[in-house]
Design a binder for these strands. Structure first.
Lengths: 333, 333
DNA sequence: GTGAAAGCGCTAACAT
DNA sequence: ATGTTAGCGCTTTCAC
């Protein structure tokens, strides 16, 4: 392992000068700087991140705290963030929030302990951003929240907004004359998605009756779960809804599959909308209406904002809103 | 931030004793150990990973190098590894191999530099495990390869084997009397998957003619790509295959969708098999035959083996084979 | 513009 | 069984 001492010796100076030169400190004469950097490159020098972090420098590490619920394609987001970071020479630590504030605080402590330059925290479900959390976040050079709706907090935010898309989905049902909307959703964690839909429906003078709400649970295999639920709950095929809003395409596809076996036509008898706009849905019969999460735009925004914050610590706090997009297809009526 | 000095002072001893006591060094009397650990807990002490790593200790960090090809649900694997690690109090760094040996070597250097306790490297596509790579891997306390087939290397391996499943897929076509098998696959990276299929087909006296091979490319939206490819290549619906093996369910679903528009029946006229056994496929019409990757078993094996290696450095080298499983459904004929 | 020296929080060899 | 001391590789005052 090559150290700054090795370089100093080769160049005939001290490690302090090398340290400065390598970080392009303008006080070091351009000439020595160039010489030192050349030697560093020749020796294939790589700064020891542990030492650098320990003495207060940057670690080129990022802490990512994401909600890795198994019923969501959330791993793909982790991948996006990781590959974006890698392009900047940054390596991300990745951990699961488990939608638990205590876990989040613990991991932030852990990240701080590891000297990460910045953190990205997804605020999902019922996590409340309290004082303790913001305090904890402020210790980092850069901290970014990825939220579901704009939070009134002095902190960089990427708002991953589903509101408008969900409203459009509801309107779509209404416009095609549906009067008994239903939902298939993991109740415990999608309170927000649910309530936006319900609110919009109510706003149009309708309601989502309790018997038309299917709680899918939060495990893997949401599709199978939905199918079983429908089968056991409506053995005769008489369903209490004429439209069904699902929190994932897999759920929607399973539901449609069951409806077909019951000779219930989609969308004529029951309109169905999924979520996440997965590739499979587009080619389903009927093509599945869904919501495009715009994940790539979200990861780009995260990458850009974290990077800017690190480069310009004094920039004013920023919020960037990425709106998911309702994709109307035949299944929605 | 609480340090071992703080604890030492509180307990009335030196930092060295605290350091030992906290790592349960048996030379420290049970009594002092207990006292020190109690105080540490009370003060909510957390060892500084950077300092610990710098002086040669463990960092409870894991380096994960995975092939994050955008046309694969590989992010889900990252998530699995991350959540498994988290349960052990380990935090993973996650990076993309980009299927490039230079990148892998660079990242391993980076991981070493960060003092990770162990690394997990997925060997995919055409990566060759050469001497330089094995050398680099040996510097870690624990190093594990996740390979596609058993590699004759003295190193812990989880073999994620697709061979048998692909053979079964081929046999399935043959048994249902197909004579003109085709494939839809990203050619550049799935040489192996391809050749296993081709070999098995040949073994049965048939062949996969070049015109029956669709190169899907390696970008996102493989389904859409496949659809467009079929449409432009066979505008009249006359296809040179009576069965189609696809490297992802999305591709298979898109293909079936196109076949339907051409009034080609699945599986009667063309049998189709996908890959990854995604939830959507099961509920497709016809239900999509596919290959279950057994990802959970793979992540469990990785977690277990890495952990064991760290706890017992002298264990003999081990290999664990996880076989993917062919899932026969109606689309396969 | 550069060097000397202290210190980040920990581990471990060497004392006692 | 515990204390002393010397690093680990870097950043950062403080001198000159």
């Amino acid at each position: 392992m090559v150290t700054i001492y090795d370089i100093a010796q080769k160049v005939g100076t001290t490690h302090a000068t090398v340290s400065r030169a390598l970080r392009n400190d303008q006080r070091i004469s351009a000439k020595t700087r160039a010489r030192i950097q050349a030697v560093a490159k020749r020796l294939n020098y790589r700064p020891n991140v542990l030492a650098r972090g320990l003495s207060g420098g940057r670690t080129q590490a990022l802490g990512v705290l994401w909600d890795f619920a198994p019923y969501m394609p959330s791993g793909e987001m982790a991948r996006r963030i990781a590959t974006d970071a890698q392009k900047r020479g940054v390596v991300p630590y990745i951990a699961d929030t488990t939608r638990n504030i205590e876990v989040i605080l613990g991991m932030l402590h852990e990240f701080a302990n590891r000297g990460v330059d910045g953190v990205v925290v997804q605020i999902s479900g019922s996590i409340e951003v309290n004082r303790e959390l913001t305090e904890s976040l402020r210790q980092f050079r850069a901290a970014m929240l990825v939220t579901r709706e704009e939070l009134d907090i002095e902190m960089d935010q990427v708002v991953h907004d589903r509101m408008r898309a969900v409203q459009q989905a509801a309107d779509c049902f209404i416009q095609s004359g549906r009067t008994r909307p239903g939902m298939a959703i993991p109740l415990s964690t999608t309170a927000k998605k649910l309530s936006t839909f319900v609110e919009e429906v109510r706003h149009c003078g309708l309601d989502v009756p309790p018997e038309a709400i299917l709680d899918i649970g939060t495990e893997e295999q949401v599709g199978r779960h939905c199918y079983e639920l429908l089968r056991s709950r409506f053995p005769d095929g008489r369903v209490p809804f004429d439209s069904l809003f699902c929190s994932a395409d897999e759920i929607a596809i399973a539901a449609i599959s069951w409806l077909k076996t019951m000779r219930i036509r989609v969308p004529e008898d029951v309109a169905v909308i999924g979520f996440n706009d997965s590739e499979g849905g587009r080619f389903f019969d009927p093509p599945l209406a869904s919501v495009d999460r715009k994940d790539q735009q979200v990861s780009e925004a995260i990458d850009r904002m974290i990077h800017q914050r690190l480069e310009h610590p004094d920039l004013p706090v920023r919020r960037e809103v990425i709106e998911m997009e309702f994709v109307r297809r035949r299944s929605a009526g």
